[in-house]
Amino acid sequence: MGRIRVGISGWSYPHWRGDFYPTGLRQRDELAYAGERFGTIEVNGSFYSLQRPSSYATWRAAVPDDVPLAVKGGRFVTHLKKLRDVETPLANFFASGVLALGEQLGPVLWQLPETLAFDRDRMATFFDLLPRSHRDVAALAARHDDKLADDRALITTDLDRPVQHVLEFRHRSFCEQDALDLLREHDVGCVVADTAGRWPQAEAVTSDVVYVRLHGDRELYRSGYTPSALDRWAEKCRAWAAAGDVYVYFDNDGEGHAPRDALALQTRLER
């Protein structure tokens, strides 16, 4: 049986202050507060811009040693380049500090835009570029260009641990068997995304990691999960754990539901 970890997607939300975060808690202490309460945290600032090694190191130090930090891949790769000609952008992304997470590096999430349909050749080429170990990350990171200054790059590691990748798609063509088979061939996890029906939800297990993102089941990013809905997700998670490790992230942060729902699901899974 794999391990089930539950957490939140991001942690720096002003409207959580005085609600999930106690009044008076310093902003720089919010990640530590969340890390003490959840089994994992998803870093999503990395999607919007290249971060710094010092930031990744700070995040790692803020959470307990047994709390992995998943990292969301950069939108420059997925949304602007749409996965074409991305070897250098990937090198820049991985050189920006991902290795500073060390043994606490969780799965790397690649989220595709809803306009990007499945193309076998494009996806296979992209999957072949993905580093599969910390040493592979370092080798790829060393090929970064001058968009990332040397003093902002981290390209060395003493670890040789595996690196897992997962794909969150938003075009229905990825639900076809050919697409799912390609994910299996490349050992890339299929993200189970609950999006209030806006985008397709595939529950295929395509690697030894099952990655779940709960964006809201009735209203995207805003609605909370009812007790019965959380019961159903707990049952699903227990079943998926037979195939490998399960990571669940709540992204319904609009009304502050994410941390409360994450705690409620975590409690169910601990029974």
Rank of each mutant, 00 (worst) to 15 (best):
Y211H: 10
W233T: 09
Y21Q: 05
F126V: 15
Q201H: 07
S49P: 01
R152M: 12
V166F: 01
G2E: 04
N252F: 10
G216V: 10
W199Q: 14
F94Y: 10
L214C: 08
H144I: 08
A241W: 05
V137P: 09
E235C: 00
K147D: 11
D160W: 01
L101T: 05
D65W: 06
D85N: 14
A153I: 01
E30G: 05
Q27T: 15
I4H: 01
A117K: 14
V6H: 02
L90Q: 04
L90I: 08
A196C: 07
V77I: 15
W199G: 12
D136I: 03
L80P: 13
L265V: 03
L129W: 07
A242W: 08
V6L: 02
R184L: 08
H257D: 06
H215M: 11
V212A: 08
L31A: 02
G216S: 07
A61I: 03
E185G: 04
T115R: 15
E168V: 03
Y13L: 08
L148V: 14
H15K: 03
D29S: 12
H257G: 06
S96V: 09
D231M: 05
P89K: 09
K236R: 14
H257Y: 05
D85R: 13
L263K: 02
R172N: 11
D261Y: 14
G106P: 03
G18Y: 07
A242V: 08
L50P: 05
D231W: 02
E203H: 07
P68S: 00
V246G: 00
A153C: 06
I4M: 00
E176Y: 07
Q177L: 09
E36V: 00
V205W: 10
E219T: 13
T157A: 07
D231Q: 06
F174Y: 13
R122P: 05
S223H: 04
P131I: 07
E219R: 15
G102M: 04
G2V: 09
A264W: 00
L129C: 08
T226W: 01
A61Q: 14
L130S: 09
W11F: 13
V188D: 06
H165V: 02
G24M: 05
D66Y: 00
